[in-house]
Simulated scan of single mutants.
Amino acid sequence: MKILKNFLQTTLLLVIGTATCLHIASAQETEKETKIKNLIGSGNYVFEAQSALPSRGQVRQLTYGYEIRVSKDTLISYLPYFGRAYVAPVDPSEGGYNFTSTDFEYNVKEGKKGGWDVSIQTKDQRDNKKMALKIQESGYASLQVTSNDRQPISYNGIITAVKKK
């Protein structure tokens, strides 16, 4: 009888502990989703690229620092490029997608399965780029960049708030 009583007490403690952990995890997820929703709504966030997926070749893991900064009036891109370029850049430092744009179209739509679909198209670059950013509610995102001068490339990463310097 004593063994049964100890077993029931232990089981009850495990159930209560698990329920508490699940409730805390759910609250943290809801808080994170709200934060991501506010960032997308404000139009002021950073896409931090973690891996690149060229049209040909293998996935490449990226080091810290490759990103796209989105704000209402400026788009700053610092991303590497792996793939075939149809037109070689005159300046070797222009090998990736490194540019600042102040004239661009920015559209946000709700995704079909939650999240957001963001489309960005530059208008003030020599080779205007189309960017399709698919953002999940958890903050993970995938970016596809299409250009006339290069093969398309995709990046996977996360959405974060702009860090103040």
Rank of each mutant, 00 (worst) to 15 (best):
Tyr140Ser: 05
Ile135Ser: 02
Pro152Phe: 04
Leu79Phe: 07
Arg60Val: 09
Val145His: 10
Thr20Ser: 03
Ser101Pro: 01
Pro92His: 14
Ala141Arg: 04
Tyr66Asn: 14
Val90Ala: 06
Tyr155His: 01
Leu143Thr: 08
Leu8Cys: 11
Leu12His: 04
Gln144Trp: 00
Asn6Gln: 15
Ile158Glu: 12
Val70Pro: 02
Lys2Cys: 06
Cys21Trp: 12
Leu75Lys: 07
Lys72Pro: 01
Thr11Phe: 05
Gln9Val: 05
Thr20Asp: 00
Val87Phe: 02
Gly43Lys: 02
Ser26Pro: 03
Ile36Ala: 11
Ile16Ala: 11
Ala19His: 03
Lys37Tyr: 04
Phe7Cys: 07
Arg84Ser: 15
Tyr106Leu: 10
Val162Ala: 13
Arg126Cys: 02
Thr20Glu: 01
Val162Gln: 07
Asp117Ser: 02
Tyr86Glu: 07
Pro80His: 02
Asn148Met: 13
Tyr86Ala: 08
Thr20Gly: 01
Ser42Cys: 02
Gln151Lys: 06
Gly96Lys: 00
Thr18Ala: 15
Tyr155Glu: 05
Gly65Tyr: 07
Ala88Gly: 01
Tyr140Thr: 15
Gln58Gly: 11
Ile159Val: 12
Lys2Arg: 09
Ala88Glu: 15
Thr160Asp: 12
Gln151Val: 06
Gln151Ser: 06
Pro80Ser: 11
Leu133Ile: 09
Tyr78Pro: 00
Ser119Val: 14
Gly65Asn: 07
Tyr64Cys: 02
Gly95Ala: 08
Ala88Gln: 12
Ile36Pro: 03
Val90Arg: 08
Thr74Glu: 11
Lys35Gln: 14
Leu22Arg: 10
Thr34Tyr: 00
Ile68His: 01
Gly95Gln: 14
Gln121Gly: 02
Val59Thr: 14
Phe104Lys: 11
Ala88Val: 04
Leu13Trp: 14
Lys134Cys: 04
Thr20His: 04
Tyr106Ile: 01
Gly111Phe: 10
Leu22Asn: 12
Met1Trp: 11
Asp124Gly: 10
Arg60Lys: 15
Gln50Val: 13
Lys32Cys: 09
Lys164Met: 10
Ala161Ile: 07
Val59Asn: 05
Met1Tyr: 12
Met131Gln: 04
Glu29Gly: 00
Asn98Lys: 12
Tyr45Pro: 12
Thr34Ala: 13
Thr102Cys: 04
Cys21Thr: 07
Leu133Trp: 03
Val145Cys: 13
Pro92Lys: 12
Lys164Cys: 07
Ala132Thr: 04
Glu110Asp: 09
Gln61Phe: 05
Val162Arg: 12
Ser154Cys: 03
Gly139Ala: 02
Gly115Trp: 14
Ile135Val: 15
Gly43His: 04
Leu14Val: 08
